Simulated scan of single mutants.
Amino acid sequence: MACINPRNTDVKAPLVVFDLDGTMIDTHADLIESLNHTITSAGLTPVTYEDLTHLVGQGARVMIRRAFDLKNTPLSEDELEPLFDRFIAHYKAGMPGKSRPYPGLTACFDRLKAAGMTIAVCTNKQETLALPLLEGLGLTGHFAAITGGDTFEFRKPDGRHIFGTIEKAGGDPARSIMIGDSVNDILAAHNAKIPSVAVSFGYSDVPVADLNPTTIIDGFDELTPELVLRLIEAQ
C-alpha cells in the first residue's frame, strides 16, 4: 500500500476532495421527493429520476428554477423564495431519509487515511443541508473540511471553491485531487489546475468521459492511495 513518509514534514499530506450528491452519497430519492413536494404546490406535475441529471448541481434554488423551465412555466424571483423555503424545510426534516453512501465509500476512506491522506468535501449543496446529511449518515468525522455552496462568495465550477476547501483542510493544491460526478466538479478541477476523477455512477447528464476528467472510476474500490499518488505526481 502507498504510504506517506511521516519524517518529511515539509510536504503536506495528499488531499482527496469529494463532491457530495451523486459522488459520495446517492441522494436522488430524497431530492426528487422534496422537489416534487415543492413544485406540485405551485401546480406543476412531478419530475422523475430521468429528469434529475438536468436539475441538480447548482443548489436548491437553481434546481427549482430548472424544474419550472423543464415544465415550460415562468417563475419570478418573488415566487422562487417561498418555494425555496418549502424545499429546504421538507428536505431537512427528512434527513438522512433514503440517502445512502455509494458502495465501498467508507472502505475507501479507511484506505486513504491509512496511507496518510486527508479527505475533504466540496459541494454546491448549502452547508445547512450538507452538514446534517453527513452527520446523519455518520460520516462527518472523516473530513478535515466540509464546504458548501454558501461557504464562500463563489462555488463550483469556480476553481476558488476548491482552493478554499483545500485551505480549510490544511492541504496544498499541488498535492490535491478532486472526485466528482458532474461538469461542475470536473470544470472546477480544471479551473483549479488539479487532477480530477470522475465517477461513472452519478448524476451527470452527459457521459463523464465527455467532461475530460483526468481519469474515470466505476466504483470506490478503484480509488486507491496508489492512484491518488500517481495523479498527483503526474501534475
Rank of each mutant, 00 (worst) to 15 (best):
A60T: 07
V62H: 12
M63H: 08
F68E: 02
L70S: 09
K71L: 11
K71Q: 13
N72I: 13
L75F: 15
S76D: 10
S76W: 14
E77K: 12
E77P: 00
D78Y: 04
E79R: 10
L80G: 07
E81I: 15
P82T: 03
L83C: 10
L83E: 09
D85L: 14
I88L: 13
A89H: 06
Y91N: 05
K92E: 12
K92R: 14
G94S: 08
G94D: 09
M95P: 06
M95N: 03
P96D: 03
P96Y: 11
Y102H: 10
G104K: 04
G104Q: 05
A107N: 09
C108N: 02
F109V: 08
D110L: 12
K113F: 15
A115H: 06
G116A: 01
M117S: 02
M117Q: 07
T118N: 09
I119N: 03
T123P: 02
Q126V: 02
T128G: 01
L129Q: 00
P132T: 01
L133D: 02
L134I: 03
E135F: 01
G136W: 05
G136I: 00
L137R: 00
L139C: 02
T140L: 09
T140G: 02
F152W: 12
K156S: 04
P157R: 04
G159N: 07
F163A: 11
G164I: 13
G164H: 12
T165G: 08
T165A: 10
I166W: 06
A169D: 04
A169T: 07
G170S: 03
D172S: 07
P173R: 07
A174E: 09
R175Q: 09
S176P: 08
S176L: 11
A188D: 05
H190Y: 06
N191V: 06
